Amino acid sequence: MKALFIGGTGTISSAITKQLSETGWELYLLNRGTRNESLPANVTIIQADINDEDRVAKLIANLEFDVVADFIAFEPAQLERDYRLFQGKTKQFMFISSASAYQTPLSDYRITEGTPLSNPYWAYSRNKIACEDYLIKQYRDNGFPITIVRPSHTYGERSIPLGVHGSKGSWQVAKRMLENKPVIIHGDGTSLWTMTHNSDFAKGFIGLMGNLHAIGESIHITSDETVAWNQIYEAIASALGVKLHAVHVSSEFLAACSKEDYRGGLLGDKANSVVFDNAKLKRLVPEFVATTRFDQGIKQTVEYLLNHPELQTEDEEFDLWCDKVIHALNTALKTITE
């Protein structure tokens, strides 16, 4: 069996690449080669920018695949390009969409693949929905063999998964914890969330590869574990070996006073309680089970980050913003209570 991954080195795709390389699959990665240094030795690299359609077409002219998966498509035009490149050259085309495409706010906290797709808060999610619509049309009209996969909040060893962080990543929040500084949690911290370790996601994804029952289907892949945001931050602090000093701030307030896209990322995603029903995935991949509990997985992430200083990117602007938000809340409280 032969597969081509467009990308292959991100948080989700790197875990799939690693696990797939240990099987009998023949794996090709098409990317620009900027993060290929740690790839398994038996992976074949096609070094190119997928946006250079003419060059890619020449490089794959004599190749056909059982599976092509695009991990870095975010807009319909990119899927139109993929259709031109891979129609007739693959038995299955897998598109990585997003669980944030599901209806926001939800009419039912339990999410199945039948939950409507609608997100008025986040352009990212609306673009993913448009991508799905395009692929479904190609499947219906032209028999393009698609499988749509919807990840939720998937994490690995290189970054701590959080609700609120700055543009330079999540390390600054960990640094605040280590320095005994207060940390912002959106809302009251009791909304429900699902964290999925990338090694668990990879198991489900590989089970869908070459799976004839997955053709024409949309499937989300998540853990069955549900945790509240307060539990998430407590687990991170515990992994760091410190006490958590939490400050709860309204998601609407955070979205209003930040330069970051908290309207999309919070109001359109993380501020809402979600519980995923993975029955469809387990029907298609009977052996699937997510085995990495969040408090276990986050210990691995924190240990890796503490041992790799090059990943500890500081964000002074975000740090100052946190202090300003907390100071504003304390000032308002003092004004009201005096």
Rank of each mutant, 00 (worst) to 15 (best):
K203S: 02
K203A: 08
G204K: 00
G204C: 05
L208P: 07
L208M: 09
L208F: 09
A214V: 03
H220D: 05
I221P: 04
T222G: 02
D224L: 05
E225Y: 01
E225H: 07
E225K: 03
T226I: 09
V227W: 03
A228W: 00
W229K: 01
N230I: 07
A235K: 06
A237R: 02
A239Y: 09
L240C: 13
G241C: 06
V242N: 08
V249C: 02
S250K: 00
S250M: 01
E252G: 00
E252T: 14
F253N: 12
K259C: 07
K259I: 04
E260A: 11
G264Q: 14
G265Q: 02
G265M: 15
L266Q: 09
L267D: 13
A271C: 03
V274F: 14
V275T: 12
N278D: 11
A279V: 15
K280T: 15
K282D: 07
K282N: 06
R283K: 08
L284G: 10
V285N: 01
V285K: 01
P286C: 03
T291F: 05
T292K: 13
R293F: 14
R293P: 08
F294Q: 12
F294C: 12
G297A: 10
G297W: 05
G297T: 09
I298K: 03
T301D: 11
V302Q: 09
N307Y: 03
E310N: 08
